[in-house]
Design a protein around this nucleic acid. Structure first.
Length: 561
RNA sequence: GGCCCGUUGGUCAAGCGGCUAAGACACCGCCCUUUCACGGCGGUAACGGGAGUUCGAUUCUCCCACGGGUCACCA
């Protein structure tokens, strides 16, 4: 077979050579140790948690080393492409602290456009580049055309599928595939010429030189040393529309774009041998690989499953709606990513997670279960460290989008809202009431008459007269100008007067010898003023609520009793 | 089914040949406290199984079991 001629036949319009490509894509001039990483999504939907995870690694590794993080859009499957997905991906990632230095990123007008000299960064626009290398491989006898149509091939293979038991006969299929492959390899120049003349489409297959009985030693930066079988499968390089498959595009692009570290999910491990083979065929230096363990979820049988789209907690946009702040999600991601992160955080409570010395060696090799309880805890800590202004703004912004009436109230009463969110904030032991912005309304909605509602009646064990008497006497002596001590002293004396002790120790020792204690009396007031049995510090609540509202609510309660 | 990866408490995990096997979350109890939220103290709870190497294995090797991933002209 005259490979040169074959190459000309298949790619008559390709005039450039790999050497031309090399000069078009010069090696990056970066300091020693700088890592070049990338996020390479197919624009088929939204960012999900399982995607944010490795992308955070890519971002940290690049920026921590003074390197480059770029975005390449892998839109090689037009059928699956979703309009506007790329924009959405970029915006979402940006919320989670992932901003790109280069690639198909958003310009001022919000449109996806290229930044950087290694473009185009959309694979659908890179056809000519791939074809240069395709032609090269053909001319070296490392790839060949296959004119068997997809449907035809599928028919051949599906004969061997036992549909009725919904179980693939793997061995039969593999044998059939192998036979087809061997047959395809035998194609003659005559056949090629005929097909080309007839305008028949073809796929370009690699001519695999591997033997699956032989193993390649390989070291993954996360997984460590491993042995994988060589690739002996003539996988497709170019689809019949001339667009490359992932495998081919990966090799060509990551080489040309100067990627030093390929970071991807471990589901890619099984096709690694293909990639290694391809890099070798093309004469490219292989990048370092980090195959990241998958995030898992529990299925209905209690088994772990890879967290995928549509799973609860998958779509990052859902986190926005649930009211999780990006900082908290990043924090949680970091705790999962590096086992020593939490320790570092305890020693550096105020620093940005980006100051954490991220270390590949501290990454887990096995997939972890997504844990909402942990996220909640992390989130409470993150929010407890924010100042009142930030919390107020964030809650308001969230509410404006997802609970408009509440949002309107908050923005119209910003000072009050800020005062509310200031309660117990700052200091060594801040309150941790909020895990999400959504938690705000149940926590403090009662400040607004619109959401004030008495959640439960007084317990039957307390006589109505006592409650009425406490409320009445409180009203008689209430003076907003009182400081907290004076205020509470008044409550204490009302308690004593009604036979409710202020001596908590004595009460605990023998509860039966008292009608109740000052905590009960406080509860009488709390339920009237807040409508709830639990609330933040009641003195602060009353201060913010103001004399008028406090009195009105208590009065209404007295009437209802 | 083949291949690859993995397996320390309910979850995330330290450990890297000798430890009473860390810590965090969750859970439970106590303390603090006018409720709650914090905070403090304490508690329940783990090396998948079997061989081997070794004076000694959670740590090294092998086998098994289990879990996961993957076997496209999808990425």
């Amino acid at each position: 077979m005259d490979y040169k001629r074959l190459a000309e036949l298949l790619f008559p319009n390709v005039t450039q050579t790999p050497a031309d490509m090399e000069s078009l894509y010069p090696a990056r001039q970066l300091p020693e140790g700088a890592k070049v990483t990338r996020f390479a999504p197919s624009p088929t939907g939204f960012v999900h948690f399982g995607g944010l995870f490795p992308t955070t690694v890519a971002e940290r590794l690049a920026h921590q080393s003074g390197g480059v993080l770029y975005l390449r859009i892998e839109d090689t499957d037009a059928r699956r492409e979703v309009a506007g997905a790329a924009e959405g991906l970029i915006k979402t990632l940006s919320r989670y602290g992932i901003d790109f230095d280069e690639g198909a990123i958003l310009d001022e007008s919000g449109k996806v456009s290229d930044k950087g000299i290694y473009g185009p960064y959309k694979q659908s626009l890179r056809g000519p580049v791939y074809h240069v290398y395709a032609k090269q491989l053909v001319s070296e006898g490392k790839a060949y055309p296959c004119f068997t149509e997809a449907a035809e091939l599928e028919e051949i293979l599906s004969v061997n599928k036992k549909e009725e038991i919904k179980n693939t006969d793997w061995q039969a299929e593999a044998e059939a595939r192998r036979a087809e492959m061997l047959k395809a390899r035998e194609i003659t120049m005559d056949e090629v010429e005929k097909n080309i003349a007839a305008g028949n489409p073809f796929v370009l297959r690699i001519l695999a030189d591997g033997d699956s009985e032989r193993k390649i030693k390989f070291t993954d930066l996360v997984k460590g040393a491993m042995e994988i079988p060589e690739n002996d499968e003539d996988f497709v390089l170019l689809k019949s529309d001339g667009i490359p498959t992932y495998h081919f595009a990966h090799a060509v692009d990551d080489h040309l774009m100067g990627t030093t570290h390929v970071i991807r999910g471990e589901e890619w491990l099984p096709s690694l041998a293909k990639h290694l083979q391809l890099f070798r065929y093309l004469g490219f230096k292989t990048p370092k690989y980090l195959h990241i363990a998958q995030i898992m979820r529990l299925d209905e049988n209690g088994n772990k499953k890879k967290l995928s789209k549509r799973d609860m907690g998958a779509n990052m946009d859902d986190y926005t709606e649930m009211g999780y702040c990006p900082e908290a999600v990043c924090e949680y991601v970091m705790t999962l990513l590096n086992s020593n992160y939490e320790e570092w955080r305890m020693q550096n409570p105020e620093k940005s997670y980006k100051e954490f010395p991220f270390n590949i060696k501290k990454m887990s090799v096995s997939g972890c279960l997504f844990d909402f309880a942990k996220l909640e805890d992390v989130s409470k800590n993150v929010i407890s460290k924010m100042d009142a202004d930030k919390v107020t703004d964030a809650v308001t912004a969230w509410a404006l989008e997802f609970d408009a009436p509440f949002g309107k109230l908050l923005s119209e009463n910003r000072d009050m809202a800020k005062a509310i969110f200031s309660i117990g904030r700052g200091g060594k032991k801040p309150r941790k009431d909020l895990a999400t912005w959504r938690d705000a309304k149940p926590y403090m909605g009662f400040f607004f008459d619109e959401y004030y509602e008495v959640e439960s009646p007084y317990p039957d064990k307390f006589p109505k007269e006592d409650i009425k008497s406490v409320l009445t006497e409180f009203l008689a002596t209430y003076e907003p100008a009182d400081d907290m001590t004076v205020w509470f002293d008044k409550i204490k004396s009302i308690a004593e007067k009604n036979g409710y002790t202020t001596d908590m120790k004595a009460y605990k020792a023998s509860p039966e010898s008292f009608k109740g204690n000052v905590a009960d009396v406080s509860m009488f007031l709390r339920l009237a003023v807040t409508g709830k049995v639990n609330s933040p510090d009641m003195y602060s609540v009353m201060q913010i609520l103001g004399k008028e509202k406090v009195e009105a609510r208590i009065l209404t309660m007295i009437e209802k009793l």
